[in-house]
Design a protein around this nucleic acid. Structure first.
Lengths: 214, 214
DNA sequence: GAAGCAATGTATCGGAGCGATATATCCAAG
DNA sequence: CTTGGATATATCGCTCCGATACATTGCTTC
């Protein structure tokens, strides 16, 4: 499967862990998972489901009439049924495998969020690895901004500069966020050491976005 | 031209205002403009240049040998020349038009940065309009996050929640940034009132990302 | 002075993914 | 009883991106 859809694969497999879902609900969860905006298209989801089906990681299960209403009249003809997708045993294994040793780049922009969302089902070592990978990725980017701003010192143009200043600041905040998470993870690893399948540390409630300004 | 490339169109037209450039250099400037990362592909740039050419906004100008070395041996055959793209008169008009009355959605994620980058060549009224549009867009998104977090209060999962908390905080910062810019713009409009083609206000140097922590 | 190699430069192709759209069912309001 | 919205499945065209191929400098390093 393609360059980006492997992250979709992970997300779908992850969401189906809990229980079987149909496409529509799956899409809603998917969109909620990564932030309530940036909608995922059905033109992406359904082909992905098909390929997961073909790979044998999920299977379809009709759900028009299993609890309650016995098929009222004719079981034949049209009657478009809901299709509930469920994980197969192989699918569960696949998810564990994806989550335990992340591909070449779990710290890229689109992938990181999904991996993070499933941290509860990821072992502590891998969590740390992904967080640190993400941090260096962002540190590179921060360095890129610094270089770029330094280069354009003279040829400076006010608004462009402001844009870059803001970009740099954002990346910088992101790095600090990751550093805090990493510290939390490490502290939690200390107190209760490399013991397989341990509980995730909760990253401290944090004082909130400081909401009374403006 | 397609859904996304119209922002590319604006960017290219804007960059060529200063002087003619060839594709390679254009790509570098483009990438620097939006942030030093997220590279733009030639597979996007060249088709765009072609369509701009077809529309008559730009024209090609050979630049292999105008200052110095007279064509040494044979002017025939291979000899691949640099192609410098320059704006036509229509191209300049087109840019002004794009910049003065922004399309249906100059405040969307990908478009906003480019429009902002060319604020120096945008009149004060339009600047304010775009900044405010962007802000409401982000306020909607913030509201989306709030809703989403509230909904998943019970079914809460630590890491997912943390991800959303961080997302909300980021959007919130973005909104504050825009509010500051808007205030600055407005103040500057006061002191030197609606007079066509006025100088842009510089948005205050700002104390910087506060760099000694950790 | 040529061999190696990084940067500059132009160009295309396959395919992933998105927006738009078509279709169909259910249910509540009017 | 019909309008309309939420739920639900599905496909198609088109855009854009990553990969790749190519050619030309210009530089170091023997």
């Amino acid at each position: 499967m393609g360059r980006r859809s492997d992250v979709l694969e992970l997300a779908v497999l992850g969401l189906l862990q809990e229980s079987g879902l149909h496409g529509y609900e799956l899409r809603k969860r998917l969109n909620a998972l990564l932030g309530p905006f940036r909608a995922l298209s059905y033109g992406t989801l359904y082909p992905c489901l098909k390929s997961l089906l073909a790979a044998g990681w999920i299977h379809e299960a009709g759900a028009g009439n299993e609890a309650g209403t016995a098929t009222p009249a004719s079981p034949l003809a049209g009657r478009r049924a809901k299709i509930v997708y469920e994980l197969t045993a192989e699918g569960k294994e696949r998810f564990q495998s994806l989550v335990s040793h992340p591909g070449p780049a779990a710290w890229e922009d689109e992938r990181f969020d999904v991996h993070f969302a499933f941290f509860a089902r990821t072992d502590a070592g891998t969590r740390l690895q992904i967080l640190e990978g993400r941090r260096s990725r962002l540190e590179e980017r921060r360095e890129g901004y610094r270089q770029s701003m330094h280069r354009s010192r003279e040829r400076a143009e006010q608004y462009t500069l402001e844009l870059q200043r803001h970009g740099l600041e954002s990346v910088d905040r992101e790095v600090r966020w990751l550093s805090e998470l990493i510290d939390t993870e490490r502290a939690s690893n200390m107190t209760h050491p490399p013991h397989d399948g341990d509980r995730p540390p909760l990253p401290a409630p944090a004082p909130g976005p400081d909401h009374e300004s403006r």
